[in-house]
């Protein structure tokens, strides 16, 4: 199977304290990887290294066998909506168009072909009927779908999400996971989140990042991973019991999703 992302012995520090130390990760074609970890653990840094927004201090990142900067055309990126501005005059269609390279010579306008590609991407995530609405008139879940459409417009083979559900209500969150699972049938997906419920999105493997990285090629958390996330706790500590209970729940998470899926089909999406 083709290797999509290869991270080998990567270390990175913003100042003196290293954020990531000797991190290894390998993502194959068709994988659906969830990267979880506490805030400040280096998840977003890892993601920025893969996107080529940061350069590792040591080690190497390869995407589709090339340097991340040369693989940009094949990657789609969905950032957190929290970074975006309210009151920005832009419609849904224009946001989706932003995902296409676009020609500078055409100035303020887009070609018909570009518009049709953007509309296809919007339809794929189920927001085609919103194309004329302004971005700031949408709900958190709708906005997030538009940002996914923007990443999909250029037809990427790898889709990278940063905290995709942080602005979505709990119900919308599971609808969103369902959409991710559907997209995962056609492309490789990496989702970064501090929310462990992301594993309910039918992921194929999980990685835990907290300065170092542990990767499990099954959609389960190992006790070592949970120790990396929460630190070692004795059984007298309430955290220890919590870890035990969580590792039980999360191991069965994919089954939970199927129940959820069946229950919701009666009353449709969103």
């Amino acid at each position: 199977m083709q290797r999509v992302i290869e991270v080998s012995k990567v270390s990175f520090a913003y100042t003196d304290a290293p954020v990531l130390e000797k991190v290894d990760l390998c993502v194959h074609q068709g994988d659906f990887l969830a990267v979880v970890g506490p805030n400040g653990g280096g998840k977003t840094t890892l993601l920025k290294l893969i996107l080529g927004l940061l350069t590792p201090d040591s080690g190497e990142v390869r995407v589709f066998g090339r340097s991340p900067k040369n693989a940009r055309a094949r990657m789609g990126y969905v950032p957190q909506y929290a970074d975006l501005q309210p009151g920005f005059p832009i419609t849904v269609l224009q946001v989706a168009l932003m995902g296409l390279p676009g020609s500078r010579l055409s100035g303020f306008t887009h070609t018909r072909k570009e518009k049709s590609l953007a509309r296809q991407a919007l339809a794929r995530v189920g927001v085609a009927d919103l194309e004329r609405r302004r971005m700031d008139a949408l709900s958190g879940g709708q906005r997030q779908r538009v940002l996914v459409a923007r990443a999909l417009a250029s037809n990427p083979e790898l889709l990278i999400f940063d905290e995709p559900t942080s602005n979505i209500d709990p119900h919308g969150k599971f609808c969103f996971y369902e959409m991710l699972a559907e997209l995962g049938q056609d492309m490789t997906i990496v989702v970064v989140s501090h929310d462990l419920s992301v594993t309910a999105a039918k992921v194929s493997s999980v990685a835990c990042v907290n300065h170092t990285l542990l990767h499990n090629s099954k959609p389960e958390f190992t006790p070592e991973m949970l120790t990396l996330l929460y630190g070692a706790h004795g059984h007298t500590c309430p955290m220890g019991e919590y870890i035990d209970s969580v590792s039980g729940v999360l191991a069965t998470a994919p089954v939970l999703t199927q129940h959820d899926h069946a229950g919701r089909e009666g009353h449709g999406h969103d």
Partner: peptide, 10 residues
Amino acid sequence: FDREFASARG
């Protein structure tokens, strides 16, 4: 609109 996405797109 989105500086980070812009730089990720090159």
